[in-house]
Amino acid sequence: MRPQREYHIVVLGAGGVGKSCLTEAYDFTAQFVQNVWIESYDPTIEDSYRKQIEVDGRQCILEILDTAGTEQFTAMRELYMKQGQGFLLVFSITSASSLNELSELREQIIRIKDDEKVPLVIVGNKSDLEDDRAVPRARAFGLSQSWGNAPYYETSARRRANVNEVFVDLCRQIIRKDLEGSGSSSDSNRKREGPGRDRKRDNRTQRRRGPCVIL
C-alpha cells in the first residue's frame, strides 16, 4: 500500500461579481467537505477543509483552500496558488464577466506553477439558474478547448449537482501527475494506470514521462 497522499486543492473564482458565483463556490466547498448539507457549519475548525476521499481505489486526503471572502486581498492570491496542486476555477453561468476573469487566474497559476498542464477544472456553477444563463455552454467549452481540453463541469452548489464529480476529476488529475512525477520508475503503477481509460491523457503521460526515463 502506498502511503496516503495529501493533495491541496485551491478554489478560485472571479472576485468582483459580488458574492454571486463565489458564494456558490463556498457553499459547495463546504458541502463537499462535509458531504452532507451541513446543518451547522463551523469554518473555523481546521478539519473543516480536509476530506478523505477514495479515487480509483486510492485513498487520499484533500485539503481544500478556499479564498472565500478574501478576494480583495489580491496579493494573497499567489500565496494560495502556491499551495495548490490542483485548481477549481469557478465562474457563474449567470455572469459572463466571471468567466472572463478565469483566464487571468489561469495565467497566474501557470506562471506560478511554471506548468502548462497544471491540474485544473473549469466549473460553471449555478446550473440551476438556467433561465439566467449568461454564458453559453459553447463558450465555456471553447475556453476549455483553448486550455488544452481542461475538463468543464456545470454544477449546482445549491442542488449539489455534479459537485462531487468536480473534485474527483481534479483529484484524478493530481494523482496522475503525482504518479508520472514520483512514480516514473514504478512500472507497476504505470501498468495499473495503463490502458482503457483516458487514452488522450495516457498519451500525454507517455510523452511527458520521456525525459525522466532518459534520466
Binding site: A30, I38, Y41
Partner: peptide, 19 residues
C-alpha cells in the same frame, strides 16, 4: 483580517437562515 472574512463568508453561506 482575511481569516475572519473567510470564516464569516463560510458561516454566512454554509448555514441556512432558517431551521
Amino acid at each position: 483580517v482575511g481569516t475572519y472574512l473567510t470564516d464569516l463568508t463560510f458561516v454566512d453561506h454554509g448555514n441556512q437562515s432558517l431551521r
